[in-house]
Nucleic acid binder design. Sequence first.
DNA 1: GGATTATTGTGATAAATTTCACTAAAAACC
DNA 2: GGTTTTTAGTGAAATTTATCACAATAATCC
Lengths: 210, 210
Amino acid sequence: MVNKKVVARLSSYRTALLRFHELGFVKVFSDTLAEAVGATSAQVRKDFSLFGISGNKKGGYQTDILIEKLQSLLGKDRVQPVIVVGIGNIGTALLKYRGFEDEGIRIVAGFDLDPAKINRKLKVPVLPADEMQDFIREQRVTIGIIAVPDAAAQAVCDTLVAAGIRGILNFAPIVLRAEEGVVVNNVNLQNELENVIYFVNTLAKQIKGK
Amino acid sequence: MVNKKVVARLSSYRTALLRFHELGFVKVFSDTLAEAVGATSAQVRKDFSLFGISGNKKGGYQTDILIEKLQSLLGKDRVQPVIVVGIGNIGTALLKYRGFEDEGIRIVAGFDLDPAKINRKLKVPVLPADEMQDFIREQRVTIGIIAVPDAAAQAVCDTLVAAGIRGILNFAPIVLRAEEGVVVNNVNLQNELENVIYFVNTLAKQIKGK
DNA sequence: GGATTATTGTGATAAATTTCACTAAAAACC
DNA sequence: GGTTTTTAGTGAAATTTATCACAATAATCC
Ligand SMILES: NC(=O)c1ccc[n+]([C@@H]2O[C@H](COP(=O)([O-])OP(=O)(O)OC[C@H]3O[C@@H](n4cnc5c(N)ncnc54)[C@H](O)[C@@H]3O)[C@@H](O)[C@H]2O)c1
Ligand SMILES: NC(=O)c1ccc[n+]([C@@H]2O[C@H](COP(=O)([O-])OP(=O)(O)OC[C@H]3O[C@@H](n4cnc5c(N)ncnc54)[C@H](O)[C@@H]3O)[C@@H](O)[C@H]2O)c1
């Protein structure tokens, strides 16, 4: 019943609400929120009802209470430690990004095979890959990001899962196999770009064709 | 009828096929392909039938012909020039990534407001934002990637569209408004991570609850 | 305080997407 | 050359996801 898309919308609602809150909005209506995230008002209400979130007939939803509930649903009530494996282009971008901290996501370490990438002095240290398993166990990290080349991704996945990682965000363009109970979410940037290219090309053809 | 998800699968089929081809596979079956991309064989065949791609009863699909057809559908028969706006963490990762070139995606320039980021000498030059519109028009670029802070994203989007960009891959966590006919695809990394966190947390609860 | 208005909450309905399950045809086998 | 096997192709069915539309109700107005 609760699927990836609904949860993604919850995240978007939350992001939008934080902005509204900052702008001083005390309450917000389903259609305001819908507009902000590109959905319909009925969908906003349906989504909320799915999680037992209710507002006020007339009067909408109280911004701070709503934020509170979404925070809790999305696990924002405590800091989530996350590690990044593969400190190349993408891995570095993630490590350097300052936006996660305010959102309760703390990248606690990076790992890489390449000795040149290792640096224990950084605020977010980059450690050798062979220290990864111990680190995960000791720090009880459950979320990992895979940003290694595709050929290495499955092996890294296996290692992570063996050490106790339960959720993976994967940037490598392959389908990872992991045991039941491990959550894998893929971000394939090339596919995303190709998607744009496809629709631009077909739209262009349609227009020419008309 | 043709939606984002189908096209995303086409991209995945293509990626998998290139690997199969490299491994010397001359033909491939719907269930092999399905397994490689995490789909079902019926879905693979349905997807292909949607695009008029047919194989051979028994004998499956001929790898090279299939690749050819997907290439053409995905606009790989010519190089697609792309620009990146905002050469921060994500923008830099994209500019430096070597994998796009082999895939017919050429990042032709980056743009940034910050003078410190400008460098015309690079293989992929980083240019001042105010040269962006002329560049797009002169080079007839139609695809752009937005990797600027959320507060700047809508303005950048408007500028891009005014200059002729028809498709946008957006990394900023806001919903961009663009005129009809402009394709916008959002990649929200924070949402993707929160998704993983959500499902890890709810799975953990379920297990404890049982 | 009764009428009016605005907005939620949700069953019913519709649309989209996926899977099923079977037909047809090509290849392999005997 | 006929039989068996294998796999594509595809309508039909099932499932999932989104929209509609309206009753319920709280605030506002007069
Ligand atoms: N950068 C992009 O824009 C982009 C775009 C599309 C896809 N991707 C995908 O994202 C992934 C990462 O891309 P990137 O550009 O950051 O790659 P990269 O080559 O810059 O970095 C990969 C890093 O992983 C490290 N590594 C390799 N094997 C490892 C292992 N077993 N354990 C730990 N570290 C290991 C390497 O030393 C390197 O530092 C790749 O799968 C790539 O296909 C990236
Ligand atoms: N880096 C990540 O891991 C990450 C994670 C989640 C979301 N994001 C989102 O991706 C976007 C980019 O993130 P980032 O970390 O690369 O940001 P960043 O701050 O490192 O880089 C942004 C760049 O955009 C430039 N810029 C600002 N306004 C501009 C304008 N009008 N025209 C041209 N350039 C302009 C800045 O000078 C800067 O170089 C942001 O919206 C961020 O919220 C990034």
